[in-house]
Simulated scan of single mutants.
Amino acid sequence: MLLASMLIAAGLGISALALTVLSTSGPLQIAQATQPTQSTPGAETKPSAPSEPATTGQRPSDIPPQPARPDEDAQKAGAQPALPPAPAEKIAPPIREK
């Protein structure tokens, strides 16, 4: 308990010291690493952003979705599955009633 109270007192002391150093220092000086951005010549005549594309809200229908695992006939014809086979499920023996 004594150690905890000493640590809290030390933290408060360091915080008070930092606040006094900050308050006694002069006004803050902020440096800017890069020059401010300038306007492109002729920017007033050009549009600022491209217009929004018109969307229909529908999925594209030119490419049908493919199943992750092709049916057996397609696999026999040489189609490769997109995903590896799923691991076998681990099944525990049924719980016996007492």
Rank of each mutant, 00 (worst) to 15 (best):
M6F: 05
Q32Y: 13
Q80W: 00
P64V: 10
T40Y: 02
I63Q: 11
T56H: 01
E52T: 15
Q32L: 11
L2H: 09
E44T: 04
A33G: 06
L28D: 13
G57V: 09
A16C: 07
T34F: 15
Q29R: 13
A86K: 06
M1D: 15
K90L: 14
P47F: 01
L3K: 04
P70S: 03
K46G: 07
S23Q: 10
S39H: 03
P27K: 03
A18G: 15
I63G: 02
T56A: 14
K98S: 13
A86Y: 02
S5Y: 03
E97I: 05
A92M: 06
L83H: 13
P70C: 05
E97F: 04
E72V: 09
T20F: 11
G11S: 11
R96T: 08
A9C: 10
D73C: 01
S39K: 01
S25F: 01
T37C: 09
T55R: 11
L22G: 08
A33H: 07
G26S: 12
L7I: 11
P84G: 02
S51V: 09
A54L: 08
T45K: 10
L12I: 11
L2P: 00
I14R: 06
P60V: 02
A86L: 15
E52N: 09
T40L: 07
T34N: 11
A92V: 13
S23E: 11
P93N: 02
L3P: 03
T20D: 09
R96G: 14
I95Y: 02
E52D: 12
A74D: 14
I95V: 15
I14T: 14
K46Y: 01
P70Y: 04
A68R: 03
P41F: 04
P60G: 01
P93E: 15
Q35L: 13
S48P: 07
L28P: 12
P41E: 10
E72N: 03
P53M: 04
P41Q: 07
I8G: 04
G78D: 13
L19N: 09
I8P: 00
S15Y: 02
P81H: 02
P36Q: 07
T34P: 02
T55H: 05
Q38T: 13
L17V: 09
P94I: 01
A92C: 07
A9D: 03
P94S: 08
K90Y: 02
S39R: 09
G13W: 07
P93A: 10
Q38D: 07
S51N: 04
G57Q: 08
E97N: 11
A16M: 03
P87T: 00
A92L: 09
I63M: 03
T40V: 10
A16H: 00
P27F: 01
P85L: 10
L22C: 04
G42V: 04
P81S: 05
I8D: 14
E44A: 15
A31F: 08
L83R: 10
Q38N: 05
I63K: 12
S39C: 08
A88H: 12
S15T: 06
A49I: 06
A43Q: 07
A74C: 12
G57Y: 01
T24S: 09
P50I: 00
A43R: 01
R96Q: 07
L17R: 05
S61D: 10
T37M: 09
Q38H: 01
P65K: 03
